[in-house]
Design a protein around this nucleic acid. Structure first.
Lengths: 206, 206
DNA sequence: GCCTGTGAAGCTATTCACAGCT
DNA sequence: AGCTGTGAATAGCTTCACAGGC
């Protein structure tokens, strides 16, 4: 059973909203509430939940706890996601510190850099290895997501190495489009592109 | 003349590729070359360029320089995009240093933070103001894009302030969906969501 | 022969509209 | 009355397929 890509993304968003709701001791939630907080339409929410096999009560909406346990098994979010960060420049460091501690089910298990002065050092609580050890280190540990935070000219090389090391998913911060064979998967976080696009909207809107 | 959102994003990508090509002293480029580097299909590239009003030569493909000047006027990229960064934590600092110097047509003109020890300080070459001065400072300068790098609970409040200050486009790094009235525009860079999604792909692919 | 340009077809995603429940 | 669930309609995006030019 394979859901649309967009639906999957929104489901993770709903999950986050449900967690907040539950923390506010809300028992159940309506599709229009989820819609309002997530920015989707209520029909969209209901369809997404339907596709995920969820069921709501026609008087009370959806039961938060029930929905969350359903998500957990469905999305395997009860197991931790292990990530490795390659490149410990400004962005790499920001990412590592962002994920440390804050998110309990996301674990930065290794970081890599070419700079010899960083090797062996512990940065934000995580050990830093030389990039050349990437394959060796990653074959010892299960890594779900490789985060590429190196300068653009090196990004494809790192992607190749991560594919070699059988890291299934890559999150790429470098402003290039990486080529990986299926079923490996890359998601781009291209800040420059986003800023350029937003700048265009801003300028054309005056 | 309003292009599809996706097309606009790809055009900025093509533009970047064209700049690289020109730097490599390539005179002209084929749609399939742009396709290969950008990850789109060649038909897609041709349609995008067509929508942007570009014309190619049937023997040589598209003239790089001609295309770029066309893009410049079309996308107003000859004028600098001014950005302000709100929140000088790890992510905020990384963003500022990422855009400083590197990208000539993107200019970080102000940064804001609530921490009084940062006020008046110059961080990565840019002056840091207290967040309470946001409206005052931004009304003196044209700011195209506001980058929100504050913790999630404060993000909506900052968004409201940016809307008040007439900043047309927002780039949001906080893991919440912000509400702004049209025609204001928000783009989300939700790293947590991306990692969760990629983790899901990774786990379901084994 | 290999390229561009583009109508038409196909596919994906979202919204409409309403039946059914409680 | 107000909610969910969902077929049907619509809108948006991508690929096909091929005409036309160099």
């Amino acid at each position: 059973m394979t859901l649309p890509h967009n639906t999957i993304e929104r489901l993770f968003l709903y999950r986050r909203i449900l967690q907040d709701a539950l923390a506010d001791s809300k028992r159940s939630i309506f599709s229009h509430e989820l819609a309002h907080i997530s920015g989707a339409s209520s029909e969209q929410v209901r369809r997404d939940l339907m596709l995920a096999g969820a069921e709501g009560n026609r008087r009370l909406g959806y039961d938060c706890e029930k929905l969350l346990t359903q998500f957990s098994s469905f999305f395997k979010t009860d197991t931790t996601t292990n990530i490795a960060v390659i490149g410990v420049g400004n962005i790499g460091k920001a990412i590592v510190s962002y994920f440390l501690g804050k998110k309990p089910h996301i674990d930065v298990i290794a970081i890599f850099d070419n700079d010899p002065t960083k090797h062996g050092r512990v940065i934000h609580g995580t050990h830093c290895y030389p990039t050349s050890d990437l394959e060796k280190v990653l074959k010892e540990r299960v890594v779900h997501v490789g985060v590429i935070a190196v300068p653009a000219p090196f990004a494809q090389d790192i992607a190749d190495k991560l594919v070699q090391a059988r890291v299934p998913s890559l999150l790429n911060f470098a402003p290039v489009r990486l080529k990986v064979p299926p079923p490996f998967f890359v998601e781009n976080m291209d800040m420059t592109l986003s800023i350029e696009k937003l700048g265009f909207f801003a300028k054309s809107q005056l």
